[in-house]
Amino acid sequence: MGDVLLMVAVFIFSFLVGYLLISKVPPRLHTPLMSMTNAISAVTILGALLLFAVETNAVQKGLGALAIVMATFNVIGGFAITNRMLKLFKTRE
């Protein structure tokens, strides 16, 4: 039960901190922000990797591999595209 409580606490804490910080992001950065959070949501790659740390059958391995491909596509693509976009923004600050 302690684990569950901790997990719920982590969820609420992250949601609140995320909410506070992201409210401060100026509108002009909303597209890069969404692109970056999109990449972050591909943390499911960790879950996909964990599937390979336990005993699974061939079908499950295949699905796990597909999950890794999809998540890596999202995470690498997301950060790369955000970086490209942010380079376009001129700074004079």
Partner: peptide
């Protein structure tokens, strides 16, 4: 926990 934290942040955003 890492998955939960990252997911919650994205959900907030």
């Amino acid at each position: 926990r890492l998955l939960i934290a990252c997911g919650a942040t994205v959900a907030a955003s």
